[in-house]
């Protein structure tokens, strides 16, 4: 059927597939719990709407951090469970793993939290998160049109992060 020709030339770029990409989602929160950025590459299961999901994720990180700060077996003076702590204070965590995903977490001194959710069998991603933080500093913080505390709408940052995360092992 050549009448409807032109179908050989693909009209749009190929649909991204899950193969070769181990990343599921990326979250960036600021210190007040505002979700600055949410990207997802592969998320078949959605149980909550996005707002609820972000709140639950932030709450999980917050509570896990107070849990690790209290549980820290090497520190003598730990204070009570749930005392508010500044970023970098107290024992924090850098990743956890379940049977279906692995979550890697990083918090900058200014309270920016970067969370990358990947396949459970990915290796240590702490350096990758630092790299994403550097991208954030370069493309978002140094962007004169960006006002702090608002969701990130910055195309250059989006594409660079997308490219970088897709390239992760």
């Amino acid at each position: 059927m050549q009448f409807f020709g032109g179908s050989e030339i693909s009209p749009s770029p190929p649909v991204p597939t899950a193969s070769g990409n181990n990343a599921y989602m990326l979250y960036v929160f600021n210190r007040n719990g505002v979700c600055l950025l949410y990207r997802e590459w592969n998320r078949p299961l959605k149980t909550l709407n996005s707002h609820q999901d972000h709140k639950l994720m932030f709450g999980l990180l917050f509570s896990l951090k107070s849990l690790t700060a209290k549980m820290d077996p090497t520190c003598v003076d730990k204070g009570n469970l749930g005392v508010p702590q500044l970023p970098g204070q107290g024992c924090s965590f850098h990743s956890f793993r379940t049977n279906t995903y692995k979550l890697t977490f990083m918090e900058s001194p200014s309270g920016i939290k970067i969370i990358l959710v990947t396949h459970p069998r990915t290796g240590d991603l702490r350096e990758s998160l630092k790299y994403i933080y550097n991208l954030y500093v370069e493309y978002v913080v140094k962007n004169p049109l960006y006002s702090p505390g608002t969701p990130i709408r910055c195309q250059l940052f989006d594409t660079t992060v997308d490219q970088y995360v897709r390239g992760l092992g």
């Binding site: 549980m71 090497t74 024992c91 965590f93 850098h94 793993r97």
Partner: peptide, 9 residues
Amino acid sequence: IELLQADTF
């Protein structure tokens, strides 16, 4: 969660 990796434990 099966494994939680914190800074000191």
